[in-house]
Design a binder for these strands. Sequence first.
RNA 1: GGGCGAAUAGCUCAACGGCUAGAGCACUCGCUUUACAUGCGAGGGGUUCGGGGUUCGAAUCCCCGUUUGCCCACCA
Length: 1152
Amino acid sequence: MATPTNQSTQQKTEHNADAAPTGTTSPDALAKQFRPIDHESKVWDRWINAKVFHADPSRVLNGAGKPYTILIPPPNVTDRLHLGHAFNNTIQDVLTRAHRMMGFEALWMPGTDHAGIATQAVVEKRLRAAGELKGSLKEAFTRDAFVEKIQAFKDEYEAVITGQLKRMGCSCDWDRQRFTMDPQCAEAVREAFFRLFRDGLIYRGKRLVNWDPVLQTAVADDECFDEEIDGNFYYLRYPLVHPHGASTQPEREAGTLPPGDAVPVTWSELRARGWDVAEDAAHADEHQAWVTVATTRPETYLGDTAVAINPHDPRAKALRGLCVELPLVGRVIPIVEDGYVVLPEALARTDEEKADPKAKFATGFLKVTPAHDANDHELYQRHKRVMDEFAGGTGKALINIFAPDATISDKHGWNDIGGAHLFVGLSREEARRKVVEAFKKHAVGSQTGAAPLFAKSVPYRHSVPHSDRSKAVVEPYLSDQWYVKVTDQRLAKAANEALHTRELSFHPARYAKSYEQWHDNIRDWCISRQLWWGHRIPVWSGDLFDRPAEHVKPLTDKIREWEAANRIAVFKRSGKDPAGLTFNEQYERYTDLSICVRREDDVEVISFLEQARFTRDPDVLDTWFSSALWPLSTLGWPHATPELAAFNPTSTLCTAREIITLWVSRMVMFNRYFMPKVGTKAEGGRLEAQGLGHGPAPFKDVFIHAVIQDGQGQKMSKSLGNGVDPLDIILSHGADAMRFTLCHMATQTQDVRMPVDLVCPHTGEVFAPKFVTNKDGYVVPASIQSSPKDPSKKMVTGYGVASGEVKASAEMPLAKNTSSKFDLGRNFATKLWNAAKFAMMILENAEKTVNAEKAGGTPAPQAAVEASSLSLVDRWMLSRLARGVADANTALREYQFSVYAQCVYDLLWRDFCDWYLEAIKPTVEKDAGQRAVLRAAIDTMLRLLHPVMPFVTEVLYEAVSRHPRREIAGLSLTPPRTSALLASAGWPQAAPSLIDEAAEREFEAMRTLVTAIREVRAQHTVPFKRKITLHTPPGAPDLAAGRDLAMTLAGLEAISTTAPTGPSVAFSVDGLDYRLSNLKDAAEAVDTSAEKARLTKVVADLTKSVETLDKRLSNPGYADKAPPHMVQQSKEQLEKARRELAAAQTELATLG
RNA sequence: GGGCGAAUAGCUCAACGGCUAGAGCACUCGCUUUACAUGCGAGGGGUUCGGGGUUCGAAUCCCCGUUUGCCCACCA
């Protein structure tokens, strides 16, 4: 594996110009400034060389370590990773590294996804842009040649993605990296398909799918997007006829109705049947009657095989037994009654019906095109018998009028063309225009003065599904597809059971609901895709008829033999067939056989089938089929590998909410189906499940994290081009800073916005880009931006490139992104660097002295330091550390990553740097116990921070490790397990006894006093270096051990119990009146106006507090019902507030 | 249409029925202070979207409304 490179030459130059040596990890020479780029690749190499990320299943299997496993959600090889991925992977790395340190055998399994349709579309687009592909893909390339192109693209992007993850510091087990189409995964896919096929859970069916006429493939619902388009409602008149006319039953069944067969129904006749519609009263008696349908897609009328009316429609009765004749086509189709049809507003019976948005434009007559509309298809299922009878036989009412490219075709299931030849060969759009034209031209019936077939059209704006990849309008299309019967209880129900038994849980828990509801309403999963890039379906189809009997016998014998040997499985027909249908029965009943061959390398079977003119299905599997097997395939299934035994089920899955159904659900179903019940022994090296869905869930926890949006609140996406490359951020802020900031943002519910700036490639300047609104209404950075200092210099943006509007060039380079959001992490890394450096400087100085004193002698082993022997500030620090460890543990256990980040941030910055380091400065050189605490504190914090900031902590750990360490009783810091690296060091363990509440109280009292003094100093602009005197009032609490700390931290020269003689300033703490003197030289007057203003505000605030507390306490319900400690607390607060208010008022009065 | 969220300081977000609603950034004032100006000290800034209710007590729970995001379904 290549190590991450891509260092900025610009930064390198700066770095070399720097006089001080940087980039070394020697303890004596930690660089003055922390430059991430100087360390990241070196640290990475140390990790890789030491193999610290490599998980060893034998340690799990022999009980030496518990497993902790995370499977990476394999990124699509379609594009570089963006910040959303960085976020997702940071979380996974935090969990993996923390558990590794906690002693788990941690495996983070890396890999990428071939992303079938997406990748094929991207490559196709690229080839077209490069001029290598013109016209139809299938004419320009052979399957193999095109797959080779995609393969090359995949190799390129897989390397890019892998490089990005490594630069981020992801501690994946890179030796185990997988790809969803590599041989190991392919074997798992093949085996899984075979078993489902054999077990009757895969079937072939004719279904309406979303058809992409450009890519000529079925697309899943999630591969579509809705777009509003301006269309029209067309109102078309269908002439009424009597059903049978002169035609014979055989003629009808053959679909060869003689012209003029249908006998028109006249208005008078219709009226006689009870038709009483005011607006039709004027129609001439002898004219042919009609019904009006409303449609947005008039061209589909060619495939109509019924007209439907609501049974409650008052007109329904008059129409019973009548039909309509499709204009031009001449097809006579029945009028069926179905409750699905919406009554027009005028006929609606209830308010609810009136409120139906469809009622506004409905005519009450619905044209039914079962082959081209999902609802119509369902309606057809309910009226199959009558519709098929009219259409001439079973299944004949499904009339497909489109070729795969969505042109009108008479070659794909439409035979009764009649007078509609003029439409054949037209595109959907042209056909629509021509149909409307024809309806305008022709009349209902042949009488002079008859009304035109076209009634009217009204503009209508509605959303229409488009294919994500090609942007073409999706056509509902009837086609042969393979399905997984996920509705079977061994799949969907088993997935929900995992939730009910708590084997599987979601964090946050509310996502369990959508998971569960999805399974309750699941539909069978269409797994075939008409693509070239993917796992090809391992089914060969052929025909056993039309062969000499002497050929059939050897064939059937072989097939029976191989089926018995589990080398092939023969497709069992639908569930309506009796179970256990024999091969002979199938053979007798069906003209075609579908045979799944278990192994790709079973040459004997495959060549035999191909010689027998069986052909392999050209389709490939839906990408999610192989993704669903990820927990199995990556660990070696179907073989009984040590990895599978050790690491499946895995521990935690980290993903975004959008793929709970697409991916999470399917992994659960497949793992439960394919894995044997826990405790089952493997036989013959292969794992055979009972096929009941009783296996384990593939993971215990599913952590669903927030989504990173751009500055406009839009999701980062490829198509929008608003993704930010993590490498840009690593360049501007460093990997640790990026990781820390992302982790800090990982709150539970709230999606986070990430506004980004641009870095000018000409000047290095950071600036906010100019935004534009694109044609889809999204606010995006303009494709071309000007350098802020020199507007003649231009650059292009990621959006510009992604949208295809511009290309990067030498004159107009691609501008990198950055964001001041990451300053948080960068500043924190710097703070850590400086704090550690300072701590080590202190330790080093002391060690020199100690070594000089003990020259020659071997130091005696020192006993562990007991907290009780330590000073207040040390006991306080140990107490804070113990709490920090506990808080971090809780946060990580509960997947509260921002809490974890915040808790280590406060521990290091607020507690350790702001107070501890400042407090120990005067004493640490002489206090060996204090130095032991200092050493332990920095060590503990490096460990706590390592999961989120691995690079900087690893560099510092090496330096810190060189300082001798004394044990602190109760604080366990075990050394690295497999190397000298922090990455394998033990997670800190702090005994609860280290939490010292007395020390915390005492320290807090001191801190309150110090803060109050600092406030006075700021108020009176007392220079930092000026030492002042504190006068404590009678009855003030004894500062005790805090006395010296207060003097150090507040800049006191003395603490006196007598009142000041000269000028002084008062302040109050806890209602006690303290004074400070010697604030200024005698010549300078103390400015009382600022002091007055401050006190006035204090008085106002306190008055309000007293009021609030008084009101609370005087409420009779409060004393009665609130818990006593709350009441007590309020009383104390009130007392304190009153004391402080009095003190402030007195002081204000004094100032006059 | 069904489901799930969100609305809190100028911005981005915390606060899981009870400390005077917090943090980072931004802002104001002061500071070359011997680890760190990517810093240090201090400060200002809130009718917690609106309206009802439950409760001794509501940012938090319930109801209604407004705005907004996502998922699913549907779209004659």
